[in-house]
Design a binder for these strands. Sequence first.
DNA 1: CCGCGGATCTTCT
DNA 2: GAAGATCCGCGGA
Length: 217
Amino acid sequence: MAAAAVRNGSWGAPLPRAFYLRPAAEMARDLLGKVLVRETAAGPLAGRVAETEAYLGERDEAAHSRVGPTARTRVLFGPPGRAYVYLSYGLHCCLNVVAEPEGRAGCVLIRALEPLAGLEEMFRRRPTARRPRDLASGPAKLTAALGVTLEDYGADLTRGPLTLREPSAAETFSIVVSPRVGIARSVDLPLRFSIAGNEHVSRGRGGRLKPPARSAG
DNA sequence: CCGCGGATCTTCT
DNA sequence: GAAGATCCGCGGA
């Protein structure tokens, strides 16, 4: 068999707390290639982070934290490495990772995953998905595929059933930087990061590149 | 492949 | 009362 379309499903240790203790934009870039793992009764569901967006604690009119802490956003102002899950358009859950030291509200929205393990279960949770690239190529798709809900609000991502981990083998890739998607303010900031050429990156402004020239068919 | 509009309900003004 | 860090199905190229 030639190179498989689906990678081998394995991963390493959880990212340490220090990984999250820095500016959101920097953390968003480094999150690419890491592995999000969800433990379920049906076994682990995992995906490689392919696309992220940073939301800044200050001077960012697109961030939920722009008006200061509220009942919904209080976890953003707490310690880093925890999950900020919110309900979008009344029906979709989106997963963010809290960055920066306690008191500052920067965070990173995970926008797309490349499924690594538990694909059969993910297809079960995403009935409209036809191909692997439909499973987690969007912020609300990936939470549905992995079963991340509002119950995960505030979860510690360095331990427990929902973790971010090192990949089993580091791979080199180029990073595409572009404006964020689906917002109405602070639209020009270059705070969206994605793995160049990765087919799981969601649609949107500047998201998809022209396919690279292929050899051997 | 691309663009358009509805669904659905929590949160903040 | 209005807007929103989205997804899906539909129609056209």
